[in-house]
Design a protein around this nucleic acid. Sequence first.
DNA 1: CAAATATAATAGTATTACTATCAAAAAATA
DNA 2: TATTTTTTGATAGTAATACTATTATATTTG
Lengths: 228, 228
Amino acid sequence: MERLFQFLKIGINEKIYIKDPESTSLGKRIVEESILLIHEIGFEAFTFKKLGQRIGSNESSIYRYFENKHKLLLYLTSWYWGWLEYKLVFATNSITEPREKLKTALAIVTKEVEVDSNFSHINEVLLSKIVINEYSKSYLTKEVDADNKEGYFVIYKRLVNRLSTMVKEVDPTYKYPSSLASTVLEGSLHQHFLRDHFVSLTDCHEKGDPTEYFTELVFNALNNTPNG
Amino acid sequence: MERLFQFLKIGINEKIYIKDPESTSLGKRIVEESILLIHEIGFEAFTFKKLGQRIGSNESSIYRYFENKHKLLLYLTSWYWGWLEYKLVFATNSITEPREKLKTALAIVTKEVEVDSNFSHINEVLLSKIVINEYSKSYLTKEVDADNKEGYFVIYKRLVNRLSTMVKEVDPTYKYPSSLASTVLEGSLHQHFLRDHFVSLTDCHEKGDPTEYFTELVFNALNNTPNG
DNA sequence: CAAATATAATAGTATTACTATCAAAAAATA
DNA sequence: TATTTTTTGATAGTAATACTATTATATTTG
């Protein structure tokens, strides 16, 4: 799995950046260090000036890669969802039994990211924490529809659709496969957040718990049908 | 129901505001018009200066009511959750049968807000849209834990707990009552958002759909147990 | 080695998110 | 009703943000 990322590149919509950060070493440092800095101080307090100071580069140089910090966030989160998508596809590809396939997919999508692959400049553990804390901000804006039209959310949408398709394969009569898929993806981020900040609002305290909770939830939703 | 709000006041943590906006007519206009303005231009572009211009008042006067726009958002969303809590308590109070009670609660919590009560200066329809678009931003910050300690989220937490308790009353053996309750509340906002902006990620297109989807989801989760 | 390209340094603008001060208006109270 | 207190409005000012523009200096590439 890890070795794949040595030669595979996550395909991100080219309109998200001005200049491909993967194409230069400065670009890679921008991505690498922005993850650390956003994780440290949060997206609101994060600025290109601070990032420049941190990587010993100039604010204006960063602006040549990304139009603004919102685009950088779209880039980082797209990378994350693309990375998860690869993991999901590779892990489920060979499985033919629909229930087994869905179960594997749910595990990948809901479990905590704990090991950094160490093969790229991107720290997936910290990036997953950024996604938990900041992803919603990338679409809860007045520009969502325009951004969506530009294709800035395609990877995420494709991931939801993959999950949705797997749900349908388990139960073609289920009325809400897309809602279930989007609830799991979004809900999983939310449960992870609650575990860290609002302990009383979740029961997912043990390791592996969000996975178990969502797996039960999904299979029970599909259970009580003729094909369940 | 509506008449109650003529003499009932939603009890909001006094630390959220500097001066109670309910105590003066300027305060009420601040609240009333901030809802319209945030709905129009979004929370990011919203400033106290713009609000001042709109209500023919001064920026500095608004700062005497709220420390900053984040506190104003906490105020508005607390009001919303308090309002929903009242609706939920009044509607379920007299119901003794646990399944019926939970079903009623789920309907209240997941259905679209469509009618403005017209008895207060607060437009609940627009406020509910603000909650859908902006609520996450009130807690996805580096200051969550401090804000939580100050009690800025008590009403929301109490609402999740009320739902969670109702879940337990239907099935005391269910392992994830709080997670289920928080998933429903958060997931409902999310499905409403998807319906407006990411149509392909949801199946809730018909009126009443989020309610039906979540009701099925919850009862199926509780179904397959000895007490279900 | 020359030409092209990328980066750094500096400066500058408009807006935001406030704080401070003081005068005027409105409300409370004696 | 006069006076005191409180509230609001007007103006000014500061530091930071979110950029853009220009020019000089490196670095890469052909």
